[in-house]
Amino acid sequence: MKYFLQRIAFYLFTAWAAITLNFFIPRLVPGDPVQSLIAKFRGQLSTEAINSLYVLFGLDDDKGLWTQYIDYWKQLFHGDLGLSFTFFPSPVSQIIGDALPWTVMLVGITTVISFILGTSLGVLAGWRRGSWTDGLLPVTTFFSSVPYFWLGIIAIYLLTGPDSFFPSSGGFDSALVPAFDQYFIPSAVQHSLLPALTILISSVSGWILSMRNMMVTVASEDYITVAHAKGLSERRVAVSYAARNALLPNISGFALSLGFIVGGTLLVEIVFSYPGLGFILLQALGAKDYPLMQGIFLVITISVLVANLLADLAYLLLDPRTRKEG
């Protein structure tokens, strides 16, 4: 329990440090959003309009950096992430709220499938060395060495077209209104297939490789020989003795990869114009939209920290040796 509280304290400190950095970094980027708006409207804005924009965005220089920092924290505790410049006047929290489910559904489900599939194949490949499973690794490693956005472009080029089942972009049929009904959900699933496949193909080999290697290492442990000598079934030895021990490093890898669900697949979303967080982040970066950038970075930071915490918890649960008594 003490160990657990220590971890929590550590994560709180990390969160504070990350949020503070999150506040400062966008302000260190040269240029400002009003300038980019002026560029966008190509000189159609008058000087008064420009001044009022500065005031509106809170970028008039009346406030010092420290006051802005304090205000930032106050707003955070109210759940207020400010207004977006690009999607003005929508609040940042609403934009993130709209984009997050798309990313979590697409990348989240794909990551889970990739982990389960890759780990199971890894168990098989490690346990049955010398069978057909040996061919798995070179093939999957080849695909993972191809950058996934390029894989996505190839997939769009080869598999999409006017008559194709696979749509080339977007998260759903633009003729539909987002709702949980029998028209929208199949359309959303159909749109997610190609990006999901792209991520899956490029990420599965990592799981296979690490699980296979751990299986091979564990298979030569004494307790595996003992398990065989005990006359346990092959399945029980493979699962309960070998895989159960080999799984530990993969579990922490999995928890860490959960943290990158939110921010890790920017390029897939861009290639497929998928309405997720990565796509929004790209737009925010282009428009120097500080509040939106900060909001997205905040979500990424928190998800990475939560994922780390989950990894710690999973380890406590799975490996009795990490549990400290008392």
Partner: peptide
């Protein structure tokens, strides 16, 4: 090393 470390 004869006992499986993750089981009671």
């Amino acid at each position: 090393n004869s006992l499986n470390p993750v089981h009671k």
